[in-house]
């Protein structure tokens, strides 16, 4: 995994909870179908606008509420591999990491707008907003978490652990 991640921002505000990301009424569908309704309570155009490599950006308390992994799974199915927010609800954060989605904490997401071209250097701990020219500091990813993400998530880690013990 390169240390630089580039992509276009899909921008939302505070308290984007898991009922918004993964509305309960569609959870019975296979993930690819459910993904078409991701974010629909606040933005019905989301799934159609999402492009592989886009960066999901929110403000405070992203992913609050349910433990449902269908929230990050639907985002991943739409091609999102990186998320930036000011703060996260804890189960959602863990779910992202376990699925190999990079979840970056950045206090300055308020100045990022929809469509901004972002370049995230998660080792240096800085986000360059190429559209505005701003440099936004972000928290470096702790080593034990980066290890999981770099492997592609918890399943790959478990594979190694099980092979080692065999």
């Amino acid at each position: 995994m390169s240390n630089l991640i580039c992509g276009s921002a899909l921008k939302y505000g505070d308290n984007i909870n898991t009922d918004i990301i993964s509305p309960p009424a569609y959870m019975e569908l296979p993930i690819e179908q459910a993904a078409q309704y991701a974010m629909s309570p606040v933005d019905e155009t989301f799934a159609a606008r999402c492009k592989p490599g886009d960066i999901f950006v929110a403000e405070r308390n992203l992913g609050s509420g349910s433990s449902r992994e269908t929230a990050p799974l639907t985002l991943r199915a739409l091609g999102i591999k990186t998320i930036v927010a000011q703060s996260y609800a804890r189960i959602f954060y863990r779910n992202c990491i376990n699925l190999g989605i990079l979840a970056v904490e950045c206090a300055g997401t308020g100045s990022i707008s929809e469509g901004d071209q972002l370049e995230i250097d998660y080792q240096q701990g800085v986000i360059h907003d190429r559209t505005t020219g701003e440099e936004l500091p972000c928290d470096p990813i702790p080593d034990h978490i980066m290890e999981l993400v770099a492997r592609g998530g918890l399943v790959e880690y478990l594979k190694e652990r099980i092979q080692k013990n065999a």
Binding site: S67, R68, E69, P72, I91, R94, N95, N98, L99, H144, G153, L154, V155, L158, R161, I162
Partner: peptide, 18 residues
């Protein structure tokens, strides 16, 4: 505490969680 499904997979396979 509540956990996600992949996290549960890890618990089922190992009996442990960080």
């Amino acid at each position: 505490t509540g956990i996600g499904s992949t996290e549960m997979l890890g618990v089922l396979a190992t009996g442990e969680i960080w």
